[in-house]
Simulated assay, not measured.
Amino acid sequence: MSPTDPAAAHPGPADALAEALRRLLGPLARLALARGVTHATLDELVKLALVDAADRQHAELPPHRRVSRISTATGIHRREVTRLVGALREGGARQPPPQRSLASELFAHWRTQRDYCDRRGSPAELPRQGPAPSFESLAQAITRDVHPRSLLDELQRLGLAAHDTGRDTVRLLREDFVPSGDSRRMLRALGNNVGDHLEAAVDNVLAEAPRHFEQAVFAGGLSRESVAELDRLLRARWSELVDALVPALEQLVARDAAAAQAADQQAASQGGPADPSIHPARQRVRLGLYALAQDESAPDAPEPPR
């Protein structure tokens, strides 16, 4: 077993980069083919991504110089760069701000709040209405802008919860928030989760010292039975980690929100803007865990260490 994914050899920087890009592009190509995305669409997306990254790196330059710099950095013709920059500006203006996933917040709250769990620590079956602990009180703890019935309908649509109409109770059907039968949401989760993981990994490669926590372990020569046993262990450990992290995250969010509110109130009372050191820029975090099990003969399987 190795603490990191093994490399088949020790190639030079250019060869290592090409191999890394090949490994990254392989799964994307498989997804594109499965969904009927052609080379022309992928080519446009790659060019947009290159121009967007170069545009951000040279944001301090005036527009005419920036186009030249982007063209030089990307190898894309100036006229094409101008078109792509315009498309990025237009698309960014129309892009709506990211919305909260109330369903996932409710799901996490239900799984981790002791008042809504049974003696074993599992999410309890709840009366749909009434005082806490009930589904109604749980939903209202997340938001009062959406009716609890609407949140229940959404959980049922995603295959995450069931409503016993006879007893008028609600129970969770899954231990993890992986909506079934919702391709749009699953693709959004793919982009968010893998995108942020890749952002962290690229930051670590480009920075002088690693900026983000990123670790993995690798093992080969396992039977299917051993992989199934490992899967059960991993899911149990992830459940324990979620149970510890979600309440801690909720406390940190509430603490920082209270501090920001206090800073705003202080500034309002003094008739000026809030002190930036008291009211800093907001940060976001995404914490995740993944596992892949595949035959060692699979085309994209990493070679064992030599």
Results as ranks from 00 to 15, higher is better:
180 S>R: 11
176 D>G: 12
138 L>G: 06
175 E>H: 07
176 D>Y: 15
124 A>F: 05
133 P>M: 06
128 R>F: 04
150 S>R: 15
119 R>E: 15
135 F>T: 04
156 Q>V: 14
146 V>Q: 02
143 T>H: 05
167 R>Q: 13
139 A>S: 13
179 P>W: 00
157 R>P: 07
133 P>A: 09
127 P>T: 00
173 L>Y: 00
172 L>F: 05
180 S>M: 12
147 H>F: 10
134 S>P: 04
133 P>N: 01
163 H>Q: 10
136 E>N: 09
123 P>D: 06
132 A>L: 04
157 R>F: 09
184 R>K: 10
142 I>M: 04
162 A>H: 14
138 L>A: 12
124 A>Y: 00
182 D>P: 06
148 P>V: 04
181 G>F: 05
176 D>M: 14
159 G>A: 00
156 Q>D: 09
125 E>D: 14
140 Q>G: 08
153 D>Y: 06
174 R>S: 13
127 P>E: 10
120 R>C: 14
172 L>I: 01
137 S>C: 10
158 L>F: 02
169 T>Q: 02
128 R>D: 01
138 L>K: 01
136 E>T: 05
151 L>W: 04
176 D>E: 15
160 L>G: 10
173 L>G: 09
156 Q>G: 12
157 R>Q: 11
123 P>S: 04
119 R>W: 10
143 T>G: 03
153 D>K: 04
131 P>V: 12
156 Q>C: 13
123 P>W: 00
179 P>V: 00
169 T>D: 05
159 G>I: 00
170 V>S: 08
143 T>S: 04
177 F>R: 01
131 P>M: 14
163 H>F: 08
174 R>E: 15
134 S>N: 01
180 S>P: 07
147 H>V: 12
131 P>W: 13
135 F>W: 11
119 R>Q: 13
127 P>R: 01
185 R>A: 09
145 D>E: 09
127 P>Y: 12
138 L>M: 03
147 H>K: 05
158 L>H: 00
149 R>A: 14
128 R>C: 11
173 L>K: 05
185 R>S: 05
152 L>W: 07
150 S>K: 15
173 L>T: 07
137 S>A: 12
135 F>K: 02
155 L>A: 01
119 R>D: 15
184 R>L: 13
159 G>Q: 02
169 T>V: 06
145 D>K: 13
185 R>D: 07
166 G>S: 10
145 D>Y: 07
130 G>M: 08
133 P>K: 09
163 H>K: 01
126 L>M: 03
128 R>Q: 11
165 T>V: 14
150 S>N: 14
145 D>W: 10
164 D>Y: 04
173 L>H: 03
132 A>M: 10
168 D>I: 07
174 R>T: 09
125 E>N: 11
144 R>K: 14
146 V>E: 08
119 R>C: 06
119 R>M: 13
137 S>Q: 03
130 G>F: 08
129 Q>D: 15
170 V>Y: 03
185 R>I: 09
182 D>A: 13
170 V>R: 07
178 V>H: 03
148 P>N: 02
137 S>H: 08
172 L>C: 05
121 G>T: 12
133 P>R: 05
138 L>Y: 00
153 D>V: 00
158 L>S: 02
160 L>H: 02
164 D>Q: 06
174 R>V: 12
126 L>Q: 06
147 H>P: 07
127 P>V: 08
141 A>Y: 09
139 A>F: 06
172 L>W: 05
131 P>R: 15
185 R>H: 08
169 T>K: 04
124 A>S: 09
172 L>N: 01
168 D>C: 11
